[in-house]
Computed example of a mutant assay.
Amino acid sequence: MEAAVPAFIAALLTQIGDRSPWLTAILADRYGRPFTVAFAALLAHGAGNAVAATGGMLIAPILTPNAKQLLLALALMFAAMGALWRLKAPDRLEGWRLGAFLTPLLGIFILALGDTTQFFTLAFAVRAPSPWFALGGACAAILIVNLAAALMGELSWRQLPIRGFRIGFGLLTLIAGVISGAAALRVI
C-alpha cells in the first residue's frame, strides 16, 4: 500500500504539466464526449503503466536497496528535465477517424509510451512488496487529471498556468533527484 500514495502524487504532478491531458481536452472538444475520451485516456495510460509495474515486479528481486533508490532518483531527474523542457503541442490527430473511443485510446497510448509517469510507476513498483499498488495510485491520478482536462476543454485547459507549474515542479524534482541520487551513491 505504501507505493500507492507516492505513485499517485508523482503521477498527478507529472500529468498536470504533460501533453496527454492537453490531447484529451482537444479530443473531448472534438467528439463532445468527455467521459468516453477520459476513460480511453485512462486505459491508454493504464496499459503503459501496467507494463512498467510488471517490469518493476520482475527486476525488483535483483536490485539492491541502493539501486532501487537510484532508480527513483533517475525518475525524479528525468521528470525534472521533461518539466523544464518546452512543452510542445500534441498532434491534434485530425486525420484519425476512429471515433470517440479508439482515437484517444490509440493516440494517447502512442503519445504517453515511455513517459515520466511510467518511469515513476516502475521506480515505485520496485520498492513495494506489491507493484500493483503503484499502478493503482498512478492510474487514479491519471484519471483525475485527464477527466478534468476533458471536462474543461482545450480553451480552459490552456488558460491554466501550466508553464509556471512545470518550472516549479521541474526545479523541485531536480533537487529531490539530486539529493536522492547522492544518498543512493552514499555521497551524503
Rank of each mutant, 00 (worst) to 15 (best):
G181S: 10
R163F: 10
K68Y: 02
V145I: 12
G153I: 02
L87H: 08
P104E: 02
P21T: 02
L43V: 12
A80L: 07
P65A: 03
L102K: 11
Y31W: 11
W96E: 15
L151A: 07
P65F: 03
G82C: 06
F8T: 08
L105A: 07
M81V: 10
W132D: 00
S180A: 15
F8Y: 14
F133E: 02
S180V: 10
A44D: 01
L185F: 13
A141D: 04
G170K: 11
E94F: 01
I167A: 13
I110V: 14
T103N: 01
R97K: 15
R33L: 10
L122G: 05
D18F: 12
F78K: 13
G107R: 10
I16Y: 14
R30Y: 05
R186F: 12
F119H: 00
F78P: 04
I175V: 14
G107M: 04
I162G: 04
F8S: 11
A182G: 15
I62P: 03
L106T: 02
A134V: 09
M1V: 06
F120N: 00
L27P: 00
L74I: 12
R30I: 03
A25C: 08
A40Q: 05
A75E: 11
L105F: 15
A134D: 10
N49K: 13
A28W: 02
T121Q: 01
F169T: 07
G99Q: 08
P161L: 14
D91N: 15
W132G: 05
G46N: 10
A75T: 07
V51G: 00
N49H: 10
L13D: 11
L105Y: 06
L23Y: 10
L113A: 15
W85M: 12
A38N: 11
A4C: 07
P104A: 00
A4K: 02
I179M: 13
A123F: 08
A140W: 00
A148N: 07
A183I: 10
Q69W: 01
A184N: 09
A123K: 09
A38F: 09
V126H: 01
G107W: 02
L151K: 14
A184Y: 08
I62L: 13
I175C: 13
G170A: 05
D91P: 01
P129S: 14
A73M: 09
V37S: 05
F119G: 11
I16L: 15
F169A: 08
A10K: 05
D18K: 12
R158W: 03
F8H: 10
R33K: 15
A183E: 13
L27F: 04
Q15A: 15
S180Q: 13
I108G: 09
W132T: 03
Q159G: 05
L93I: 01
T117L: 05
L147W: 08
F120L: 02
A52I: 06
A138D: 03
K88F: 01
A40I: 06
T121F: 06
I62E: 10
S130H: 14
A60H: 10
R158T: 12
L27H: 07
G107L: 06
P104W: 03
A112H: 09
A183G: 04
I59Q: 00
A123I: 00
K88G: 01
